[in-house]
Design a protein around this nucleic acid. Structure first.
Lengths: 219, 219
DNA sequence: TTATATTTTTAAGTATGCTTAAAAATTTTT
DNA sequence: AAAAATTTTTAAGCATACTTAAAAATATAA
């Protein structure tokens, strides 16, 4: 299937995870950097291909077949991220940029080689789950956004939901990394700031960051 | 630059190495699996882009700029082949098939990472030279086709010029591999067969194979 | 609930990269 | 050197994936 189609179903899939209410042509279009008109055209075409259900003015809903295609692309994307991070020690921003291209030119055969080489990982370096070869996600996500974490509790960083270079540079400098431990010291409700301790350093994060850093409480 | 353009200049580049007399639209078209008309159109377009010189009914000649683009793609192709062969132990046929796709979606940045990881190799697993980051091939090829080798001499296999799956399967079964040593026992001039000894096994090859296996004499 | 703003759809058009068919030029054979 | 065969070019057309502009529908606000 073409790159445009793979990116379209992927964008719908990702959108459904975060903003299901707004999975409409205009929203998908802005995420893909194309016009709303182009997105409407594509949605009609993919409906005839059985990849999604399109009804005028309604939100776009992937069919089972469309979701399977999206998960296949997502799998390849996240496998490449994990592989590039491990093998070449590339940053979270770099691996995303490269995986965005490689994901469309990766055979299922090669994806299995990469997965086996890595020991069939269940998560990529952002903490996002890697679907298995059947397009199933077998892990359960119990993480919460850091903005909702409790004061005086310890957490493990479990996801960094972003594609922004500056954010990842900040993370790299401050030890904010998938799997690392942090202590939440104080939530400043008024100013929407969060004070945490990481590697003995105290830092204060604003809501731009605490809404995209996800954590799991340590029991 | 688009995949179609990259493949076009690459095909011209490769053709010039083996069959310079016939670097015309029809020949390039058949190598790319497109019509002659499409190749003529593309040649005109690439002329205006300064990638090649096109004159009606004349052979196509890459400009410096076009050759540089071709070498950049060839570099990425051969780096991927070397990498996939080493890291995932994939066959010569498999690495070619995957590299054919990945080469177009590989940034210069990633190519450098792959090259450094491999120790900046000068040859890929087929024995083809890998251009450096400036698009230069600094190695000199002194190999000859096995069909032209001398009887009772020892050689090192230096190139396997093919993309054929069956050929590579035969090679894998018989130890015919880049860098391996063989002894040429007899050239049967009439039947165009060549008898060689490899790993203590005696095998006889016909001209289909002895024209694409290249060797260097051991002094 | 009516006016306003926003979003979605339709319509017309464009660039790329191909196709087939026929005309033109070149190459090969006799 | 003329005839035959082959190759290249031209011309017209198509599918994909976009664009902009305007019309239609929906969502929001007064």
């Amino acid at each position: 299937m073409s790159v445009a189609i793979e990116n379209f179903v992927k964008a719908i899939y990702n959108n459904e995870k975060h903003d299901i209410a707004n999975t409409k042509p205009g929203n998908i279009a802005s995420k893909l950097g194309i016009s709303s008109a182009a997105a409407t055209d594509m949605a009609k075409k993919l409906d005839t291909k059985g990849l999604l259900n399109y009804e005028k003015y309604q939100k776009l809903r992937l069919t089972k077949k469309g979701e399977k295609m999206a998960l296949n692309v997502v799998r390849k994307h996240r496998l490449w991220e994990a592989f590039l991070h491990k093998t070449f020690d590339m940053s979270l921003h770099e691996i995303h940029r490269e995986a965005e291209l490689l994901e469309h030119e990766t055979s299922d055969f090669l994806a299995e080689k990469i997965s086996a080489y890595l020991g069939n990982p269940k998560f990529d370096p952002h903490g996002d789950p890697i679907p298995n070869a059947n397009g199933e996600i077998t892990t359960k996500d119990t993480s919460i956004a850091l903005i909702n974490a409790n004061e005086n509790k310890d957490y493990i960083i479990s996801r960094l939901i972003s594609t922004d270079k500056e954010f990842f540079e900040f993370c790299a400098l401050n030890g904010i990394k998938y799997g690392n431990k942090i202590a939440v010291k104080k939530q400043f409700k008024n100013s929407q700031m969060t004070q945490i301790i990481i590697n003995t350093n105290t830092i204060v994060l604003n809501q731009d960051f605490t809404q995209i850093i996800y954590v799991n409480e340590i029991n």
